[in-house]
């Protein structure tokens, strides 16, 4: 269960204050596949980075399974990211001089998993995301965009996180490959009961998720009634759109 409480993030731009995330609150039950849509610059990626502890909120809190991230020291936040979060970046953000297998093994290495165990698991994950075996030992810069995205998803799953945060996972992919990636995320949610929050421009992708949120000028609204999926929690009534104060 993820609870987001009155989350605010402000930035200074010259003498103006910008609020890409303005008093956002919502809850996501375990095993939910949710999406956030919104225009470019609406604060989607900022919200995602706050949920993933890549950034710290100006105010508000994120509570994951009863544990508050606000005020958590940097070392604990790193541990949280390592243990509970899996990131899929729009630009994949894989380590270019490592092989696909090494990239997937990296989070497990940081978690102290034995080499033999992490090698076995990394191979299983790469097979699970349907990356051909002959691509496992290829360097990242010799893989196609779709293959790199699969490796990124496999890496996000490496430490069996409770929450996967995917920032435009299909943004750099063609329609067919993007569709496959969505199928992959859905199947992962079903098989591992992982909560998945996807930020996207892609309306068709958003329509395939259990819950859809729209972020507009820093305010989050849930677009339509969520599909009835087991383990899904209703959107918070506080998640009401409002004009984000600027300046």
């Amino acid at each position: 269960m993820i609870e987001v409480k009155n989350l605010v993030r402000t930035f200074q731009s010259g003498d103006r204050t910008i609020k890409p995330v303005n008093n956002v609150s919502f809850e996501l039950a375990e095993g939910t596949l949710a999406s956030i849509v919104g225009k470019s610059g609406s604060g989607k990626s900022t919200l995602l980075s706050l949920l993933g502890a890549l950034d710290k909120p100006t105010s508000g809190d994120v509570v994951v399974n009863g544990v508050s991230l606000a005020g958590m020291p940097d070392g604990k936040l790193t541990e949280y990211r390592r243990r509970d979060i899996g990131f899929v970046f729009q630009q994949f953000n894989l380590i270019p001089n490592l092989t696909a297998l090494d990239n997937v093994m990296l989070p497990m290495e940081f978690a102290g998993v034995r080499r033999s165990v992490r090698t076995k698991r990394a191979k299983e994950l790469l097979e699970q995301v349907q990356l051909d075996v002959d691509r496992h030992d290829r360097r990242i810069n010799r893989l196609s965009g779709g293959e790199q995205q699969r490796v990124a998803i496999a890496r996000a799953l490496a430490n069996e996180p409770k929450l996967i945060l995917a920032d435009e996972p299909t943004g750099n992919l063609d329609e067919q490959t993007g569709g496959h990636i969505i199928e992959l995320l859905s199947s992962l949610r079903r098989e591992h009961n992982t909560t998945i929050l996807v930020v996207t421009h892609d309306r068709s992708l958003a329509n395939k998720t259990d819950r859809r949120f729209r972020l507009q000028q820093g305010r989050l609204t849930e677009e339509t009634a969520p599909k009835q999926v087991q383990g899904m929690a209703p959107a918070s009534p506080k998640a009401v759109a409002a004009t984000a104060p600027v300046g």
Binding site: G52, L54, D74, G75, T78, E79, R81, R82, R83, F87, F89, N93, L94, I95, L106, P107, F110, A111, R155, N159
Partner: peptide
Amino acid sequence: RKEIGVLKAIGAPNRT
């Protein structure tokens, strides 16, 4: 720097 950011994002401790 980006690589360091990625390593941090996937849970690498500062000492590593």
